[in-house]
């Protein structure tokens, strides 16, 4: 089921890169309000992991989640529209950057409480397997989430009930501004080991290395194995959140940032393509992103009268707040 094509893998990282760069521009231009948590620098992880998944599989992530949604194959135009709060967005403008979801392709959403996705995905995978599907799941989270109790509870539950969930820790070195060394006692892989969960560390800047690690884990899980964990070492090229573009926070030494940016997953994967292939992908991605931004900005905004549409799936309505 793994997609071993280096060109498509390059396209995914390139698409996420250009999407995020344009999204940052839209934040600066005021078309995206509230800012975003850019995925810049971490593209190889979402791209590599999603290349190892099949159509029946599910994933969920965190508020640094654009890459997961795009790598899974969501429409970039509807994703941009969501970020811009438009009616045509994936979530009809109700989720925004932090909560983009596309359940039609198994993206069960992104949570701003960063350890939340582990247990949700465990439940979803368990349910789908009970219904006869061969589903595996992926829970994406950062190094900050490994200190949230509910994620550790999810490790336990998934291992105990042998639910095939791939826990993917995107260790970019910082939980917002808190370095891993200041927050994580023991180790991330050690947390998995405590629950009998097989864990591997992988170079998160190399999309193929991530893909191969994920594919091996998915194979073992489909063969009846329990959950696994991948700790993907990565580096966030940009801010934790775009508010840092306005408010400079001094927590990453400049030489560290320079070194981190030097290992760029888009370049690493791009080097594996011929110049012609790379140029063709770049052109196609550029056209796709251009069209996607146009689609978003041309799309209608939701009607304020519909602010609480979708509050209840049952169709219940809520009292309005006016006097």
């Amino acid at each position: 089921m793994t997609d071993a094509d280096p060109v498509r893998l390059y396209r995914t990282v390139r698409l996420i890169r250009r999407f995020e760069q344009r999204a940052v521009e839209l934040v600066h231009g005021g078309q995206i309000v509230g800012g975003i948590h850019p995925y810049l620098g971490q593209e190889g992880i979402a791209a590599g992991v999603c290349a190892a998944l099949g159509t029946d599989d599910v994933l969920a992530g965190t508020h640094r989640g654009h890459g997961h949604v795009l790598a899974r194959g969501a429409d970039p135009a509807r994703m941009f529209a969501e970020l811009c709060g438009r009616l045509t967005g994936l979530n009809a403008g109700r989720g925004g950057s932090m909560h983009a979801a596309d359940l039609s392709i198994g993206v069960l959403g992104a949570n701003a409480i960063v350890g939340a996705s582990g247990a949700i995905i465990t439940g979803a995978v368990w349910a789908r397997r009970r219904q006869g599907h061969d589903t595996v799941g992926v829970s994406f989270f950062g190094d900050g989430a490994v200190n949230e109790g509910m994620l550790l509870e999810a490790f336990n539950l998934a291992a105990l009930w042998r639910v095939p969930v791939l826990f993917v820790c995107e260790n970019n070195g910082y939980a917002t501004t808190m370095p891993v060394a200041g927050a994580v006692a023991g180790s991330i892989a050690g947390r998995a080991a405590a629950f009998g969960i097989r864990a591997v560390e992988v170079d998160g800047q190399d999309p193929e290395a991530v893909r191969d690690a994920a594919a091996a884990a998915v194979d073992r899980m489909r063969a009846g194995g329990g959950p696994e964990l991948i700790e993907a070492r990565t580096y966030r090229f940009d801010a934790h959140h775009t508010f840092e573009h306005a408010v400079r926070l001094d927590y990453r030494p400049p030489d560290e940032v320079t070194r981190g940016r030097a290992r760029d997953p888009v370049h690493i994967q791009g080097e594996r393509l011929s110049d012609a292939d790379r140029a063709a992908v770049d052109a196609e991605v550029e056209a796709t992103v251009d069209a996607a931004v146009r689609f978003a900005l041309d799309s209608p905004e939701p009607d304020p009268a519909d602010a609480l549409t979708y509050l209840y799936a049952s169709g219940m309505t809520a009292r309005t707040g006016g006097g």
């Binding site: 599910v58 247990a119 949700i120 465990t122 439940g123 368990w126 349910a127 509910m150 509870e153 539950l157």
Partner: peptide
């Protein structure tokens, strides 16, 4: 369940997203 209230509550949310009624 083990005494993992937060995990099994979210487990139920995930199972419900997948079509069950926990």
């Amino acid at each position: 369940t083990p005494l993992s209230e937060q995990a099994f509550t979210s487990f139920a949310t995930g199972a419900a997203l997948a079509g069950l009624r926990p």
